[in-house]
Computed example of a mutant assay.
Amino acid sequence: MPAILETHGLTAFYGDFQALFGIDVTVNRGEVIALIGSNGAGKSTFLKALAGLLRAPAQQIVYKGEPVGGMAAARIVGKGIALVPEGRRLFASLSVEENLMLGAYCSRPGRWSLDTVYALFPVLKERRHHPATALSGGQQQMVALGRALMSNPELLMCDELSLGLAPVIVREIYAALPSIVADGMSAIVVEQDVQLARRVSKRFYCFQEGRVSLSGASAEVSDEAITQAYFGAVS
């Protein structure tokens, strides 16, 4: 399968602090990959760099054959990359439907609209006029995911969808993932639950101290190898 996204020696900084050291990742079209690793390993930083929220040299991020590193976040969304951020980041002063509509501002064509988001998450239609932050945590996560889908992305990036949610809600949200990517959308899923990440992805990358410590097919790499890559020191 051709790659939709590639990073080449990707680095990222917060001021003088270097958070990523030469990250090489490939996402193929129609593929779901997982990023695993402990807190502070660099997973969210990686997504922020892809989304244009952190500066990066242009050639270090290539999307559909085009260097996009350092491109403004609004342009990144317009090109078909959408981020569901950690912590949801909903607008408290806006209703559920207004938050969803913000995702459609770039007017990309595609199958995702209010109707298709509501079909995916019917509870959001029932509560579309409620303040978004008045919903339960799981329902807020559905709004954040729906908002990203409203931009009709070709690459969907999900940062810690399960964070702070009850297991039954996590299962409900992840149960929607196959139908979301059924039309060939690619996805990057950052997930603390390693076994869940492996179940929903084809391949994974394990981050450790801002570097890739292990990568492989999600169904084939041993638990022991992943444990070593997750906790072991990076040389």
Rank of each mutant, 00 (worst) to 15 (best):
V123E: 12
V77K: 07
G9H: 09
L161T: 01
R55Y: 05
D24F: 02
Q140Y: 03
E220A: 15
F21E: 04
C206W: 07
A233V: 00
R128A: 13
V194C: 06
R55I: 08
L47S: 00
L145N: 05
V221M: 00
Q59K: 10
A49C: 15
P2Y: 01
A148Q: 09
A134S: 15
E220Q: 15
S93T: 13
L156R: 02
V190P: 03
F207Y: 09
W112Q: 12
E66N: 10
G42W: 00
P109N: 13
D115H: 08
V234M: 10
L149C: 10
G37R: 02
R198H: 08
E6V: 06
W112S: 08
G216W: 02
R127T: 09
G138C: 01
P109T: 14
S136C: 10
V221D: 03
G52F: 05
R89T: 11
V84W: 03
E220N: 14
K125M: 11
R198V: 01
V117A: 04
D183F: 01
K79Q: 08
V77A: 06
R199H: 10
P178S: 14
H8A: 00
T227E: 15
A12G: 05
I173A: 13
P178K: 11
A176K: 13
Q195P: 03
G70P: 04
L5S: 06
A225Q: 09
T227N: 11
L10S: 05
V168E: 00
L163R: 04
T227M: 14
F13V: 01
I81W: 01
R198N: 08
C106D: 00
A132D: 09
L165N: 08
G164T: 11
A72W: 01
M185T: 11
T116R: 07
S93H: 13
E209Y: 02
L161M: 12
T26Y: 05
A82N: 11
A49Q: 06
T133C: 08
M185P: 06
F207E: 09
L135M: 07
S107Q: 15
Y230F: 15
Y230V: 13
M101Y: 02
D16E: 14
A187C: 11
V68P: 00
Y230I: 13
G103K: 14
A219T: 14
G22M: 13
V189R: 05
V200G: 05
L5H: 07
P57R: 15
C158F: 05
V221G: 04
L35G: 08
F207K: 05
A82F: 11
